[in-house]
């Protein structure tokens, strides 16, 4: 089934679901919305979108999705979290913590740059060669600190990790989905292809 289109689910509790869907569709993926445990059965990879992490966390609690999402990630299936999504993947959350999945070995500091007046866009300073010139849009963004030994930092801004990977898990503190640059989404699809190899 190497030629099958990858099926990517986007957690649709709240946030910029449509923006992620546009990126994925440009890359030829089949996109579905995830609101239920059973929705996870029909997808190869998952995106936790940007949005309000408190709102999304309350939705996960109400829908009983914490355990199924954690199991999905721990089973080695690819997951990408952007901004609020990155917060939800972290091992620990600071600054008005929300419950997280704990599948990414970093500490996430919520709203670390300030309010919307402090939101900004810039180019990543150091990044993996295939991501050169990465344009990063930060909206009330978190910071990630203390990445564990298995975490690879793929891009930094002002010295802080802004894109990290750990096995099948990817997280960015910025919003690739708000730009026309689909390279981060392509990384997720590459992981998906890897995961499907027998």
């Amino acid at each position: 089934m190497a030629t099958a289109r990858p099926r990517v689910g986007i957690l649709a509790v709240q946030g910029d679901v449509e923006a992620h869907a546009r990126s994925l569709e440009r890359l030829g993926a089949l996109v579905t919305r995830v609101l239920r445990d059973k929705d996870l059965d029909a997808i190869d990879a998952l995106i936790l979108p940007g949005g309000e992490s408190t709102t999304i966390a309350k939705g996960l609690q109400r829908l009983g999705l914490y355990e199924p999402l954690e199991a999905f990630a721990r089973a080695g299936r690819p997951v990408l979290g952007t901004c609020a999504g990155a917060v939800l993947l972290a091992r620990e959350v600071e600054n008005d913590p929300v419950r997280s999945l704990g599948v990414l070995d970093v500490v996430a500091i919520r709203n670390a740059y300030g309010t919307q007046v402090d939101s900004f866009a810039t180019r990543a300073e150091e990044c993996a060669s295939k991501l050169e010139g990465l344009h990063c849009v930060f909206i009330r963004a978190p910071r990630l600190r203390d990445p564990g030994p298995d975490v690879e930092v793929l891009a930094r801004v002002e010295g802080w990790p802004v894109l990290v990977g750990q096995g099948n898990v990817l997280a960015s503190t910025f919003h690739p989905e708000l730009t026309d640059d689909d390279r981060i989404h392509q990384l997720l699809l590459d992981l998906t292809r890897e995961a499907q190899k027998p």
């Binding site: 946030g15 910029d16 679901v17 449509e18 949005g51 866009a121 849009v137």
Partner: peptide
């Protein structure tokens, strides 16, 4: 363009809320 993407960016994050 930066103004647009950053201002609209927060509005995007509030969708579905």
């Amino acid at each position: 363009a930066e103004a647009f993407e950053i201002k609209v960016g927060l509005a995007e994050m509030l969708k579905g809320g």
